Amino acid sequence: MAGVRFHSVLVTGANRGIGLGLVQHLLGMPSPPQWVFAGCRDPKGQRAQELQKLSSKHPNLVIVPLEVTDPASIKAAAASVGERLKGSGLNLLINNAAILKANSLDTETLKDMSEVYTTNSIAPLLLSQAFLPLLKKAAQESPGSGMSCSKAAIANVSSIGGSISSFTGWDVMEIVSYRCSKAALNMLTRCQSMGYREHGILCVALHPGWVQTDMGSSAGHVPPVTVDASVGGMLKVLSSLSEKDTGTFLDWEGNVVPW
């Protein structure tokens, strides 16, 4: 990642798992971002203790109250980040927040399906809309005509579980609502790549691997990928992206994942 600088980054779902790992790795970079914004539902709660500890050591870390399913909370978060940036733009939005309901095809419900879709598919749309002015500003501030994550980008943390042609892990977890929501997120990424290309904003979907988090372990198996390996890999991939990569679906090692 030498030579790549993320000036300002917002990570949603940043209080645990992959989100917390992303924040930790960003802060530990040789040239860390000037601002790392950590979106978290309850910044002062028990689940945000690690973030609180980090913020006491890193003045460039700002914990932002953010409930990704609440449009009013999203609007307030965008205003708060914009105020902190003092006229500068936001370089990188990482839509990481997600939930999983371990339902089968036979036990899936309207309530669970709606909740998973709202968090995993609709929230990234609403967040990208709310932060679009700051992303556009960042793109305008960067010289050159190409695209990169140090200029302006949206990274949607997806899953190979949303791949229709590579139907992975059905025998381990059916997780129907999760699979459908990530397939929808992949399509959103493609739509964003088309709609935001004219603004110079790169958009990509990332599969982080089957990671050793609370969510990843919910099937009762030990996932093969550590948070450190996943996050380090994803940041390396993000640092290498250019205009040709916008609208693609990649894994944490940079491999193309089939739609």
Rank of each mutant, 00 (worst) to 15 (best):
L135V: 10
L135M: 11
A138L: 02
A138C: 03
A139N: 08
Q140P: 03
Q140F: 06
E141Q: 14
P143V: 12
G146L: 09
M147S: 06
M147E: 10
S148R: 11
S148A: 15
C149W: 02
S150F: 02
V157N: 11
V157A: 06
V157C: 08
S158G: 12
S159R: 06
G161F: 01
S163D: 08
F167S: 13
G169A: 11
W170K: 13
M173E: 08
M173N: 10
E174L: 07
E174A: 12
E174G: 06
I175S: 10
V176W: 01
V176K: 00
V176G: 02
S177E: 04
S177I: 00
R179F: 04
C180E: 01
K182M: 08
M187Q: 07
M187K: 01
M187G: 00
M187L: 09
L188E: 01
T189W: 01
S193E: 05
G195H: 03
Y196M: 10
R197T: 05
R197M: 07
E198S: 13
E198H: 09
H199Q: 13
H199L: 12
H199G: 01
H199N: 09
G200A: 02
G200M: 04
L202A: 02
C203F: 00
V204I: 12
A205F: 00
A205T: 00
L206Y: 00
L206F: 01
H207F: 01
G209V: 03
G209A: 04
W210C: 09
W210M: 09
W210P: 08
D214H: 09
D214A: 14
M215H: 02
G216E: 06
G216F: 05
S217Y: 08
S217D: 08
A219R: 11
A219G: 12
G220C: 07
V225H: 10
V225S: 14
V227Q: 04
D228L: 15
A229C: 05
S230L: 09
S230R: 11
V231Q: 04
G232V: 04
G233T: 05
M234P: 00
M234E: 10
K236Q: 14
K236F: 11
S242M: 12
S242F: 06
K244A: 15
D245Q: 12
G247E: 02
T248G: 07
D251Y: 10
W252N: 06
W252R: 03
W252K: 06
N255L: 08
V256S: 15
V257N: 02
